[in-house]
Amino acid sequence: MGKTWKRHLEGYLFIGPWFIGFLVFMLIPAGWSLYLAFTDFSFLKPPVWTGTENVRKMLDSDVFWKSLRITSVYALLSVPLHLGTALLAAMALNVKIRGIGFYRTVFYLPAFVSSSIGVAIMWKMIFSDSGVVNALLTGIGLDRVKFFNSPDNALYTLVGINAWVLGTAMLIFLAGLQQIPRELYESAKVDGAGAVRRFRSITLPLLTPVILFNLILGIINAMQVFTNGFVITRGGPAQSTYFYVLYLYEEAFKFFRMGYASLLAWVLFLIVLLLTLLTLRSSSAWVFYETEMKGGKR
């Protein structure tokens, strides 16, 4: 019995730094916001308990459903696009040719500046009616397209922009590719496996832990998309990019309805948690951890 007790303690010692931080900096604020979800809280006065009033209001609200729909569409489109392009880029940049470092840096560039103020202005200008993109389109004989000034196109434009910031996911895929031991490829080549076969049997399976990571993170981030909707489109035009977290933010800080906003946060939390758990559950079918290989020749 003493041995297992020691094992548990050891585990907690290792995760200790996170665990303590979690208790102090996460659990308490999260618990507080859960309480707020059932109150009327305007920041400057003490919260007033209102029970399920906020829930009723949320379910009745058109905007709630609309913003949920917009965010889901965004996630559905941007996650595969973002991941797919990041993986392709990582593979292209994993090659050992001269100057590859330069290209890697260039591909990562957007991630450096994506949070800066200039970029929002720049996007608006690039996608404006007489901006660079339309200049290219008309240059090859196509009609002008309205991007951010059309309720039909604004959301897809944001999806496209999101793919451009593939730097982080790409970097992680790169690290994942780097971790695959070269000897596996070498012995496969010796066994006569072609490039595609090598990709399918070695690269892809061994990348699955990382793919899982990027997938889960992608879902979490896509469902919480906020920044570009805030600085570029302000939720418009005609609420076509009114993301869920943007709705939440306005309820909290523009209309001082922090109690209701807290409920919105927890609803999102539950949705994302569900999606993540589903993904994790499915992962046992397609994710390959080398840890699980017991003995045997590779």
């Binding site: 059309s150 309720p151 418009g236 035009p237 005609a238 609420q239 523009k254 209309f255």
Partner: peptide
């Protein structure tokens, strides 16, 4: 009033974009 103004804005944008 802030909510009402925002509601006006929403309705107006639908008109602006011919919805």
């Amino acid at each position: 009033a802030p909510d009402a103004n925002a509601a006006f804005q929403t309705a107006f944008e639908k008109y602006l974009f011919k919805q």
